[in-house]
Design a protein around this nucleic acid. Structure first.
Lengths: 141, 141
DNA sequence: ACCTCTTTGACTTTATTTGACCTTTATATT
DNA sequence: AATATAAAGGTCAAATAAAGTCAAAGAGGT
C-alpha cells in the first residue's frame, strides 16, 4: 500500500464493505489521530477518493456531535460500460470539440455498431467503454 | 556495445518475466539512480521499448509516492479471429499502404491492446477481427 | 558528413501532506 | 431567551515529492 492517502482510502473502504448498509460514519479528528496525520488529510482523502464520480456520497456536520458519513451508491450507478447510444454521443462530442476528426469518428462509430450486433449487452457495453477510453488515451496523451 | 537503453530494457524485461503477474512497478528516480542516468532516460526507454505496439501497457502516477507500472499483455493464439499480434501487423500494413494515418493506427492499436486484457481469448480474438473489418469498411468504402 | 538513435537537463504538471485560520453547531451560562 | 464557549468539520495555500515534456547535445554506424 502506497501513500497515507491510499491507506486511509483502503481502511474506509473495508469499513464500508463490512457494513450492511454501505455506509460508514467517522469523526474526522479521531481518524486523523489513528493515522497520525493532520485532520485536513482526511478531507483530502474524501475529496479525491470518495467523489460522486467514483460512486460515493458524503455528508457531514460540524460542531458538537459532528460527523462525516460516507455512503457507497449502488453498483448500477458506477457500472463501467456505455450503451451504443451513449458511446455514439460521446464520439460526437469528441468530434465537436475537435479531438476526433470526422473520419476517425466514423471509424469508431462503425466499429461500435459492428460490435453491438453479435454479443450480449454486458460485454458489448464494456467493450464500448474500452474503445472510447482507448481512443482518448491516444488522442489526449 | 549495448546502449544504456538496451540495458535498462533488458533489466525491466527480466523483472517482468520473473514476476507472476507480468507486471513490474518501479520508481523512475530510483531506477535512474541505479543506472546512473537522468530520470528522463527511463521515460525514453518506456517510450521506445515498452509501447502498446510491442504489447506492453504502462501506467504511472506523479507526485508524492508516484510510480511507474509496466505490464506485459498476453498474446495467445486461437483458430478463429485475430491474435493481438496479427491484428497489430494488419494495422501496420494498412498504415504502410497509406490507408490509415499514423494517428488512426495508433488509435486502433491502443484499442486492441486494451480489449485483450479483460476478456477471454475467444471473445477478444473475435472483437479484434471486427475492429479491423469495421475500420476497413469505413476506409475503403 | 549525415542520419538516426541516445542521453541529458531545464522546465512543467500532478499528487500528497501539513498547518494556520474560518465556519457551523451544540451546549452551558447568565 | 440571549449569549458565550467549546467542539466539531472546512478551506486554502505552501512545502514537498514524484513523473512528464521537449529540445538540444552526443555517439555510432554508413
Amino acid at each position: 500500500m502506497r501513500s497515507l492517502t491510499d491507506k486511509i482510502e483502503c481502511y474506509l473502504k473495508v469499513l464500508i464493505d463490512r457494513s450492511d448498509d454501505y455506509k460508514v460514519e467517522i469523526q474526522r479528528a479521531e481518524l486523523a489521530e489513528t493515522f497520525q496525520c493532520a485532520p485536513s488529510q482526511i478531507t483530502y482523502v474524501l475529496g479525491t477518493r470518495f467523489t460522486a464520480e467514483e460512486g460515493f456520497r458524503t455528508e457531514s456536520k460540524r460542531g458538537g456531535r459532528g460527523f462525516i458519513r460516507i455512503q457507497k451508491l449502488s453498483e448500477k450507478r458506477l457500472a463501467v460500460g456505455l450503451t451504443q447510444e451513449q458511446a455514439c454521443m460521446t464520439i460526437d462530442d469528441l468530434m465537436s470539440q475537435g479531438i476526433l476528426t470526422v473520419r476517425e469518428a466514423k471509424l469508431l462509430i462503425n466499429i461500435i455498431n459492428r460490435i453491438i450486433m453479435n454479443l450480449d449487452d454486458e460485454i458489448s457495453d464494456y467493450i464500448r467503454s474500452e474503445i472510447i477510453e482507448g481512443a482518448l488515451e491516444v488522442l489526449e496523451g
